[in-house]
Design a binder for these strands. Structure first.
Length: 410
DNA sequence: TGTCCACTGGAAGGGAGGGCTT
DNA sequence: AAGCCCTCCCTTCCAGTGGACA
């Protein structure tokens, strides 16, 4: 056999029995422990579709990693297996990715157009045109169309509920096809932002997915590790530890599975034949740091400048800042790098975005006579993140830069 | 009790960049 | 080529505000 640089790492101690995809959250297993009841409930709602009747609309609530998407995908597979599957079109759209009215209509429409040349373009048409095209396509056949809108709260937040209103009354414009909606939301209060008409139509049926507790997470992990590993690779004690850690993070099964997968990868890389608690702890740190680093890397330059400004202040022992201070520093960094500065209004929004990404803590606080403003504090490891920021071409010239001492007094 | 600071965050709108239609 | 349309990223403008201090 030929020598290969991969040779030493191939073969001998493969810790994964099969494909490691099994431990990715996107993998849909044969059984979803502790979600049997939800599957049953949703199946019951959707069963009319198999008889050619329009099912009720459904609204599903639950925090991240509570199995919402998994259940919905599971049902999709089941429907495809059924005899009447031809009549039923089940399509899934993530509104965090397609987050504009135009995008949603275009996305749905294109699932019904096989001919590439006739596809709806991603821009150029008016939304009304796209809607008409969609109606026309849907109505070509007698069929039931179930549209799953995952992260439906995201689109409402961004573009309002007009698009939902339009989709909810699309049946009035159809003569042969029928459309049902399944909305999935992380945010329990999301219906408060909806127009009452939209709210009542959308939530014919409601389902709530509670977070998993530690025992339930343990069962999920056990089930998956049986598929992914040989006996003894992932001891119960390790699975319990992972379950306990993930239970603290609001019962997020996705976190639990990621933790198990990364732990296994670390063990494998180290040449161990089973996962130990130390792998889990290292995996936890690795995941946390990787998440932050990924988020920082993909920030636009302006946001990077803002974040760097906050970190440079922290370096000087100035860890709690006001919007004004952040903006002053930001202006200084813009001058140094020759970047055209944005207005303070815009920077306020970018700071809020950093907050939502979890890279900084920002909350409004009143200092009485001294005004009312955000109190901003970095929540990332200073040195690691600084190093990442300095890799950006524009920020590179700020390497080693120290802030001019502020004129503000203690 | 009222004042007043330093913003906050909504609203409206502009204009660049994508691309369709005629 | 001219005329539209949608989205993104920003700017301009501004009424509103929590609470320390006088």
């Amino acid at each position: 056999m030929e020598e290969s640089i991969f040779q030493p790492y191939l073969g001998n101690r493969a810790i994964f029995k099969m494909d490691r995809e099994i431990l990715r959250p996107s993998y849909i297993p044969e059984r979803l422990p502790h979600r049997e009841a939800h599957i049953g409930q949703l199946a019951q709602v959707l069963v009319p579709a198999l008889k050619g009747e329009r099912p009720s609309n459904v609204l599903i609530f639950g925090k991240t990693g509570t199995g919402k998407t998994a259940v919905v995908k599971y049902i999709e597979n089941e429907i495809k297996k059924a005899d009447a599957a031809r009549l039923v079109h089940y399509l899934y759209l993530n509104c965090e990715i397609v987050d504009t009215p135009y995008g949603v209509l275009q996305g749905i429409g294109n699932k019904f157009i096989e001919n590439f040349n006739q596809r709806i373009p991603f821009t150029g048409l008016s939304t009304d045109r796209v809607y008409s095209l969609l109606v026309e396509k849907l109505d070509e056949e007698r069929r039931i169309v179930v549209i799953v809108l995952d992260e439906i709260d995201k689109i409402v937040l961004k573009s309002g509920d007009d698009i939902l209103y339009q989709l909810l009354k699309i049946n009035d414009d159809l003569s042969r096809a029928r459309v049902s909606l399944i909305g999935i939301s992380n945010d329990l209060k999301f219906t408060e932002y909806l127009d009452p008409r939209v709210r009542s139509r959308l939530s014919d049926e409601k389902m709530v997915f509670p977070p998993y507790n530690a025992e339930e997470l343990f069962d999920i992990l056990l089930e998956r590790s049986k598929l992914a590993f040989d006996n003894g690779t992932a001891p119960d004690a390790v699975l319990s530890l992972i379950a306990a850690l993930a239970a603290q993070e609001h019962g997020d099964a996705r976190r639990a599975l990621d933790l198990l997968r990364v732990s296994a990868e670390l063990a494998e890389r180290q040449g161990d034949d089973h996962i130990g608690e130390e792998h889990v702890m290292r995996a936890k740190n690795k995941i946390e740091l990787d998440t932050v680093i990924e988020a920082v890397k993909s920030l636009p330059t302006q946001s990077k400048l803002i974040l760097l400004g906050i970190l440079l202040n922290e370096e000087l022992g100035n860890s709690k800042l006001t919007t004004g201070e952040v903006y002053t520093t930001y202006r200084e960094l813009c001058r140094k790098t020759g970047v055209a500065p944005l207005t303070q209004r815009r920077v306020t929004d970018l700071i809020s975005e950093l907050d939502m990404l979890g890279l900084v803590h920002a909350r409004v606080k009143s200092f009485g006579r001294a005004g009312r403003t955000k109190e901003i504090q970095a929540s990332v490891p200073l040195l690691d993140v600084k190093k990442i920021l300095e890799k950006d071409e524009v920020l590179a010239e700020l390497r080693g830069y120290r802030l001019r001492v502020q004129t503000t007094l203690m």
